[in-house]
Write a protein that binds this DNA or RNA. Structure first.
Lengths: 120, 120
DNA sequence: TCAACATCTCAACAGTTGTTGAAATAAAGG
DNA sequence: CCTTTATTTCAACAACTGTTGAGATGTTGA
């Protein structure tokens, strides 16, 4: 994850519809969802609007797509999300690791395999 | 950190100059830097341009400011950064904690107090 | 008080972004 | 093949964003 990619990712996440799409896909799991279902979840946004935002997210590397019959399935690009967080934390750690501790604690109680289910 | 705050933060971070300012301030530590010094670091950006971006970042809650003599010192708002990461990870954890593992590992080697200095 | 310094405010402008609606493409099933 | 379903592409338009340069504001030390 370099600066250019991070900028594209942040730009993609700075739009309400797109942020909601990402959150939906992230919780939907690796299988992804068809574009239509995503549109329905976004209070029935028009198909062209969905297509615009989904391409934008794919361009930014935050989601992937694959065709399945008539539908196109979109799924969260988990490594890109991890990379973005890593990019932020890399900054955060520069000389001041203690500062990052709150975030670290959140993650360790939320995401550590041994503490599954503790997510708030 | 709610959706509105997250959107503002992502929007603020999606601009090259502002992302660089945040990275600079994060590594500069809690004391912060005067606006002029930040401007110099941004290949001598004009003062009005700096003022615009710094206010934008402050509005988004990512930096704080305080006057010190003639200068105004800007510092990274570390809790806001942690909060943003937490917001992302909260999404990431929804039902699939194993997915977040790469990010978790990065943090544990980078930010844990017991592994200080391991930041890449 | 005045001159120098540090930063902010404002209006104008160019460039970018998101929405809409209509038309095009692609796949499935009768 | 033709119809239906699913999604994308395109042009037009309104709204928003970042830059610039000029001027205003606040602070310090002589």
């Amino acid at each position: 994850m370099d600066e250019k990619q991070a900028l594209a990712a942040f730009a993609a996440l700075s739009q309400e519809t797109r942020l909601r799409i990402v959150r939906l896909l992230v919780t939907a799991g690796p299988e992804g969802l068809p574009a239509g279902a995503i549109g329905d979840a976004m209070d029935g946004a028009s198909s062209s609007r969905m297509s615009f935002h989904l391409s934008h997210l794919e361009q930014a590397g935050l989601v992937t797509s694959r065709r399945d019959g008539r539908s196109i399935l979109y799924a969260a690009a988990y490594p890109a999300l991890s990379g973005l967080i890593e990019f932020l934390m890399r900054d955060c750690c520069g000389g001041h690791p203690d500062i990052c501790d709150p975030a670290f604690k959140t993650l360790s109680t939320c995401c550590s395999p041994s503490v599954t289910g503790a997510c708030s």
